[in-house]
Design a protein around this nucleic acid. Structure first.
Lengths: 240, 240
DNA sequence: TCCACTTCACGTGTATACAACTGTCGAGGT
DNA sequence: ACCTCGACAGTTGTATACACGTGAAGTGGA
């Protein structure tokens, strides 16, 4: 747990009133997403308690919830750690999200209120602006909000909440496996294109948009060299 | 919380050693599935603690986990209750499961070890026997195990664990909305048919099997009359 | 008769104390 | 130099005490 993060959290908390487990969940989730808490970071209960000014009871509840969201790993008698999905799980998460978000998009197409479509357009536009301004955190924020909006308005709320979970998980692995030197994972035009088909009511086109979007996104990731066979080889050859 | 259930739990626990939160989760889940704990049942922390011989700390953790599994409802400052999904959520759960289990079946087809196929056949056969013997609890047990086996061996483990969740949730609503007087929700031949296509490797046929199976299952449920409009009518007409 | 208010039992929210476990570092023997 | 074992510090597991919130029954008045 970096101390710079501690200070930021303190600042954010100090103003508000009391802290609940939900606040801790949000803060930690956000910190993981923003890579302030890199995968593998230790999250001892007492330390978190001190940072947030609450006792272990509250922290424990928050950690349990974070574990059920697949954000942290909680094993018996061991410190909770920020989860670090391997490349296989990353691929599986993407294809699961492809299935679910594709279906949600197809179901949603043509059934969205104008109000929501405008909100989507707003997010897409702001994301573009943030990208042009090189403000990556803000860009991510709007991109996430875009997809969350879709999940929230899914006619099938069960699929919607599954999608919410998958959006979080893919965001984490994107942060983890983003190619070095790549400033942003912005894909110009993808979101507006999806909006167009959602508005016109072409469900299958919307599903295809999602598939294309996620495939492109996965392409920006560095998932290649870390195959299990290669790993084994490099270990046996005596690296390090 | 019925007291008959308490006695059963006591019996099951007394023999074993210490109880962990996982044990409580399993027991409660099972009791809900078997309709020993009808929807809406109150689950006070102290009472559960007494039943299982542990303190509230352990019970709280178990309840939090059960809430994340959608088995119980946990609202601030109120007793946890066994969840009672409405008919809309029931339909949505079924169609979500249709999407996910269909995909898992398609992915799995032709890629299963012989060992697993034999296990599946075994479960299907035992389910049939239990049905013929009119032993509904055992039948449900094998039916659940059948689908869980599929979920466990999904090549995509993310989808697999999502399926595990959906199997549980559909089982709960089946117990809830099963047509009165219907002894069993057994569908002769569905499982063997699926196995055939899983073995032959015909993914699309397997997907269709799942869809057909779930549609039939949903047809055995009493989801019609309880529409919100009808409910309102029956209330206004003054029936007790 | 009905409504608003008070009171109280019940149950959860939070903090804290102590027991039990895990990994690590160092001493001692081989 | 290496391996083994034991003690210790750090952390989680569990139980318990007290504070606080909620809903229901009872009470008084219009």
């Amino acid at each position: 747990m970096s101390s710079t993060w501690q200070r930021e959290v303190m600042a954010e908390i100090g103003a508000g009133g009391r802290v609940s487990d939900g606040d801790i969940v949000r803060q930690v989730r956000r910190a993981v997403l923003m890579q302030r808490l890199p995968p593998g970071s230790r999250l001892p209960e007492v330390t978190l308690g001190e940072v947030f000014g609450v006792s272990r009871s509250v922290v424990r509840k928050a950690l349990t919830r974070l574990a059920s969201e697949h954000v942290v790993d909680q094993r018996p008698n061991q410190v909770a750690r920020v989860r670090a999905p391997d490349v296989d799980e990353t691929r599986e998460t993407f294809s699961a999200r492809n299935l679910v978000e594709g279906e949600v998009a197809a179901l949603t197409a043509g059934r969205l209120e104008d109000r929501v479509l405008v909100q989507l357009e707003d997010r897409a536009e702001r994301e573009r602006e943030a990208f042009l301004a090189n403000d990556e955190p803000t860009r991510i924020e709007h991109s996430l909000a875009f997809h969350h909006l879709l999940a929230e308005h899914s006619p099938n709320r069960v699929l919607g909440s599954m999608l919410t979970d998958l959006i979080l998980r893919t965001s984490i692995v994107i942060a983890l496996y983003k190619r070095q030197g790549l400033g942003s994972c912005y894909l110009e035009g993808d979101h507006p294109c999806l909006i167009k088909h959602l508005r016109s009511g072409d469900g299958e086109a919307a599903r295809a948009d999602i598939e294309q979007h996620l495939t492109s996104l996965q392409g920006l990731l560095d998932l290649g060299p870390r195959d299990s066979s290669i790993d084994l080889k490099s270990i046996l050859s005596g690296g390090k």
